[in-house]
Nucleic acid binder design. Structure first.
Lengths: 241, 241
DNA sequence: CCTGCTATGTGACCTACCCAACATATCAAT
DNA sequence: ATTGATATGTTGGGTAGGTCACATAGCAGG
C-alpha cells in the first residue's frame, strides 16, 4: 500500500539484482517517459543509454529498403533496451520504437560499462537476457515463415498483453500489419474473425482480449516456446521457492 | 609455405586474439572432425564444448512441431558454436548441424568459463561475435518473410561460399529446402532458373557458382547487410591498417 | 453541421508457394 | 547388367496473402 508510483524494481532485470549491486546502480538511474510513437533509436544509431522499462512496450524493428518491415522482438518491463552497449557493438541494424507508452529508468553508457566490467550479477543477468532475446528473435523468424497470420496475431496479442499486464492493447491494425510484416487488410480480415468468435473486441485502435484461453488455443507453439525460454533463463523471483 | 595443415588460427575468433590470450588457450584446444550430417546438439541439449571451426559450415536450425524448419544462422570459420555456455543459458532451443564437413578446435565448458570470467579479449570478441549472430538471425527473419525464394537462394549460396572459401558447395536441393523453409520442388524450380541463366551449375548434390557478380545482382540487400555488420563488428586482421 | 482525418470494411484479381503424384536421371553395389 | 537408392524434373490444382481500388464509420475542429 506504500508502493511508490515509480520504482526501478518494477523492471525485471533490476528486480533480479541482489541488494548490493542494485544499490550501486540506484544513484545513476534516471526516470524517463516513453511516449507513444517515440523512436528511441534508428538503425545504426550510436546508443547512449541502456533503458530498463517499467511499463509500456518497445518493439525492435527491422526495416527493408522497399519499405516493408518486421518486428523481430518485443520488450516490456521484463527486459532492457540498448544491449549493444554491453555487447560491444554500440549500435544495431534494428530500430527501436515505442508501441505502447510507458516509463523507463535509464543508465548511461559509461556507468553501465563500468558495472558490466565488474563481472557481477548485472553481467550475468544481462547476458542471460540477451540469450532470451536471441531465442525470441529466432522463434519469430521461424514463425513468420511457417505459421498463418491468425496464429501470429494471437501470439502478438498474448505477448503484448503479458508485457502490459493488461487485456487492453492500444494499437491500430495498420501498425500491427507493420510489425507482423503483412498488409493492414490482412490484419483486418484476421482480427474480424477473432472478433466474431468473441476472442477479442476492438474499436478504433484499442484491442481488448475477451477470451484468453480461447486465444491460447489458436496460437502457435511459438508463444509457449518463447515464454518457457524466458522463464528458464530469467525465472521470476517467486518461482521454484 | 610452412603453414601446418591444421592451425587454430584458421578460426577467425582465435586469430583475433592477442598472443598472450591465445597462448593461454592453446594447450586446451583439441582438434576434432566435423563429419557431414553430424548433429552437434539438439534443441535443449546441455552444451559441453565451445567449437571454433576452421573449415566447413555449421547451421543453426529451428525445428517446428509440424516437421517444418528454418535455418536461423550459418556459421563458418569466422565464428563459434556453443555460445550458450558463456551467455549462461547452457542450452538453446535451436539444433546445430554440420552442413558441409570440416574441422574445429574445441574448448571445454570449464576452461571457457574461466577465460571468459577474466574479462579479457576473448570475452570482448565473443560478445561482439554474439551481436553479429543476432544481426544475422534478425536479418534472416525479415528476409524469410519478405524476399522471394530466388533472392534467398542467392543469399544462401553466397554466404555459404564465403564461409567455405570455395565456389563449390556440396549440398542437395532437398537440404536447401529444409534450411530455407521451403519445399524441395521450389528450390529445384529456382535453381534451374539460375542454372539456365548460367549463374550456377549443379549435379547431384554439388552446386558450383559460375558467375558470382551475377548472383550478387540478384541477391537481396540482406546479404550485404549481414556481411557489412560482420565486418564492422569483427574486422578481419588486415582491414583498416 | 460540415469538413477532413483516421480507422476499419470489402471487393476483384494476381502470384508465390504449397501439396500430391509421378517421371527421369545418376550413381553404387551386387 | 540389374537393382535400388538417391537426386532432380514436371504436371495440375489449391490457398494465403499481396495489389489496387474504393466504401463506410467514428471522431475532432472550425
Amino acid at each position: 500500500m506504500s508502493k511508490p508510483l515509480h520504482d526501478p524494481r518494477q523492471n525485471g532485470i533490476l528486480a533480479a539484482l541482489p541488494e548490493p549491486d542494485y544499490q550501486r546502480l540506484l544513484p545513476n538511474l534516471e526516470l524517463i517517459e516513453m511516449p507513444l510513437g517515440w523512436t528511441i533509436s534508428e538503425s545504426g544509431d550510436h546508443v547512449k543509454y541502456l533503458l530498463f522499462p517499467t511499463s509500456g512496450i518497445v518493439s525492435l524493428i527491422y526495416d527493408l529498403e522497399d519499405g516493408s518491415s518486421s518486428e523481430i522482438a518485443i520488450v516490456g518491463n521484463e527486459g532492457m533496451i540498448g544491449i549493444s552497449i554491453y555487447m560491444g557493438g554500440e549500435s544495431m541494424p534494428s530500430s527501436t520504437e515505442i508501441q505502447c507508452p510507458g516509463y523507463a529508468y535509464r543508465l548511461s553508457r559509461k556507468i553501465l560499462k563500468q558495472e558490466f566490467a565488474l563481472g557481477g550479477h548485472l553481467q550475468r543477468i544481462a547476458l542471460l537476457y540477451t540469450q532470451a532475446l536471441i531465442s525470441q528473435t529466432s522463434q519469430t523468424a521461424v514463425c513468420n515463415q511457417h505459421h498463418v497470420l491468425e496464429q501470429q496475431l494471437c501470439r502478438w496479442l498474448l505477448m503484448s498483453a503479458d508485457r502490459l499486464h493488461d487485456n487492453n492493447v492500444v494499437i491500430t491494425q495498420a501498425l500491427i500489419g507493420k510489425l507482423l510484416g503483412v498488409r493492414r487488410e490482412s490484419v483486418n480480415d484476421t482480427a474480424r474473425k477473432l472478433q466474431s468468435d468473441e476472442l477479442i473486441s476492438y474499436v478504433r485502435g484499442r484491442i481488448t482480449i475477451l477470451d484468453r484461453p480461447g486465444l491460447e488455443k489458436r496460437v502457435c507453439e511459438c508463444y509457449a516456446a518463447v515464454t518457457a525460454e524466458y522463464e528458464r533463463l530469467l525465472p521470476p523471483p517467486h518461482a521454484g521457492k
